[in-house]
Amino acid sequence: MRPPSLLCLLVPLLLLALGLSLGWALGDGLKGYSGERLAEVALELVPESGATHPVTSVLLNFRGYDTLLELAVLLTALLGIWSLGPAAPPYPPPGLVLASLVGWVVPLLIITGGYLLWVGAYAPGGAFQAGAMLGAAGVTLTLAGHPTGGLPAEPWQRLLAALGTLVFLLMGLGLMALGSGFLIYPKGIAKWLILIIEATATLSIGVTLIAAFLGGRPMSLRNRSR
């Protein structure tokens, strides 16, 4: 089923015209850009946010609500994948060389994940990168034939996948109930709250990514014995 040739001609032309106008628009915007509006405010307030790394403070404090919803998006994707059916059958077990390589790489990935989580407070890194490392570890395990990529049984998977969003949300609601306001961290403990959120988010992201790679609902133990 090939698209008609007229379309093949028309679309690039249209896109070219669109590109030129967009480029013009971008140039126009950049020329008017004084570069010191929101960025300055944000950088100035970073010390008050409980994290010293600007991106982390934006992500988890200034725009924490976005991150909360984003975790919900991840959860949605996972639940959507689960709704479609059971996971694919596992990969065959690896050869000897590969197995030893996996044995090396997986712990390294997990340790790196921990490291990235920890440095996130003051340097590049944080929940997403750390979660991605966990995810990579799980993917590696899956490729090496582990049927669940190192994940626990379904109820635990559910708990872990929802944990990040849940802790984030409950923290927001709890702070609101205590009189502080939704997602408003008290100055003194902000750092710790962010760390808790990041840690749980890391777990959730990692678990979600692995489960997404498995591509379906966790199989019950009986089916898994194959």
Binding site: A42, V55, S57, V58, L59, F62, D66, E70, V73, A77
Partner: peptide, 20 residues
Amino acid sequence: PIPHALVLTGIVVAVSATAL
């Protein structure tokens, strides 16, 4: 840092959608 945070969010959203 703000566009950086936006992009981080965007990447995660994109991977979720791709996985789905």
